[in-house]
Design a protein around this nucleic acid. Structure first.
Lengths: 242, 242
DNA sequence: AAATCCATTTCGTGC
DNA sequence: GCACGAAGTGGATTT
């Protein structure tokens, strides 16, 4: 079987399906199996899924995905790094095993309607814009987006509660902790910023005043209340320059 | 074309590929397209992915997934509810559009190596054990798992900071807020519990003492420090009965 | 539609 | 390996 080719089998016997899957796994191909199957998972949690038609994707990096006809997320899965094998019992059975944590996924096919093994080459990386990291770059190149007189001094500055997105000083010389979020935020982001401000106050253990500024497109009501209660500030900024 | 059948085409012309995809979309089939493609996304963020071999999955609920040979997550996607269409320009082009937020995904194929449309029926629901909800049931049926004398009074009790997992009283009559986590927790879960405790103190605005207990398999060091600082308690409990 | 929070979150980064 | 936090997080539930 040439690795250049795409191996396919329509309505294969379980033995033939097993051959294609095994060949695909051996040769580092991307394998898809479509058919009626039961799925069992045991690991961090455990689950059972009775027989139905599903698409199973096996990737050469050890990923397994079981997709139904709806939903963006697979109904069952196994992460990269797992070991896969395919055997024939009553029907085609695909096992995936992971150590640390110990997890096992078993897909038992009643009937395989289609199996394909694709030879994949993909060197490209995704270029993504509009991330939190892009917001940081925007602010570093124009600190007045936070407030007039703001001077960034460090990014990812370490505190005893973790790394602060942007650390700097305001026009009065007070220390400023900036927490960035690329989307509308709730109370969790406020608590996060408050932890950093508290930690920095303790770390500096001086009389130094420490302000906290949450920079995000918008705030929920309860986040706003919590922000006020903690004496923190908010600046509205979107990830894209618009 | 019978909906009972699985439509497949190997190394199809762009026109033939478009026919299969369009027929699949029209008839509510699960469609997979494998080939060399470029991908563009514009919406909450924006991204570009240069030409490479990928597996594209189109679901009848409007989901689009673009998978490379590695990673559990699709490199690009569109959630359920999007509208899909397939046209031929230089090659097969698949568009997916979403309103609110306005988002568009475009997949342009240089060459299609394989296209399949599957008729899917799947009535089954996943049965999952070992969730946070299972922890709650365990505690309600044996409250001493939290501590001797603990008496649950309500689940999902509302406070001004959100709903508390389990609300109850301890053997001295003090109010108790229990926050459950199915896995090892960090500082975020401690802050969450602290918000609930603070909110309940304000809500009750009495002299009533309010305790907070974090129930999880384990704690990180910084979570432990933060827990101590806030005067909260920890109880070790796993989601599964072991 | 908005808000909140869980998730077998996954993924990347740094230690 | 663990810890921490971002993500175009997704998904469920409730208002």
């Amino acid at each position: 079987m040439s690795a250049r080719e795409t191996l396919t089998a329509t309505l294969p016997s379980h033995g033939r399906a097993q051959e294609v899957v095994e060949a695909g796994l051996d040769e580092g191909l991307l394998v898809t199996v479509f058919g009626r199957c039961r799925v069992e998972y045991e690991g961090r949690a455990s689950s059972t899924l009775e027989a139905g038609d599903r698409l199973v994707v096996l990737k050469p990096d050890g990923t397994v995905l079981v997709h139904t006809e709806e939903g963006q997320q697979p109904v069952n899965w196994q992460p990269p790094g797992c070991t896969q094998d395919a055997v024939v019992d009553d029907g085609l059975v695909i096992h995936s095993h992971r150590e640390s944590p110990d997890e096992e996924l078993t897909v038992e096919f009643d009937s395989v309607r289609h199996v394909v093994a694709y030879n994949v080459t993909d060197e490209q990386d995704l270029s993504l814009q509009g991330t939190e990291s892009d917001m940081r770059e925007r602010i570093l190149s124009d600190p007045s987006l936070v407030e007039d007189g703001f001077e960034p001094r460090a990014t990812e500055r370490e505190t005893s509660a973790g790394a602060v997105d942007i650390y700097g000083v305001d026009d009065t010389g007070d220390a400023v902790v900036v927490e960035l979020k690329r989307r509308r935020v709730g109370p969790d982001a406020v608590s996060q910023l408050n932890r950093y401000v508290d930690a920095l106050k303790r770390d500096l253990h001086a009389e130094m005043h420490v302000r906290g500024i949450l920079v995000a497109p918008s705030l929920t009501d309860s986040a706003h209340h919590l922000l006020d209660r903690h004496g923190l500030d908010f600046v509205s900024l979107s990830p894209a320059p618009q």
